[in-house]
Amino acid sequence: MRHAWILGAAAAAFALAACGERPQVVQYKQGTYQGKPDQKPYAGAPFDGNHQQWENAMRQRNQTQNEYKRIGS
């Protein structure tokens, strides 16, 4: 019984030993981005990952800056 208790405590201590350990510093690599990854602009709604649809929307939006096309020349 006593041995089982000691074994259990040792196993628990071993299992929980690394739970609180998180990397405290970034792994520094010269000249490479060290921050968090970013989402693509078309990742979420309303494009839901459709890159082509997003590009078409941007192209259409771009042309609103061209008044020769917007109101006719």
Partner: peptide, 16 residues
């Protein structure tokens, strides 16, 4: 010095 800048595939320079 901390390399917090990145560039998106659209060529936009952003930082963390």
């Amino acid at each position: 010095p901390v390399d917090c800048f990145y560039k998106t595939e659209e060529g936009v320079v952003l930082h963390d």
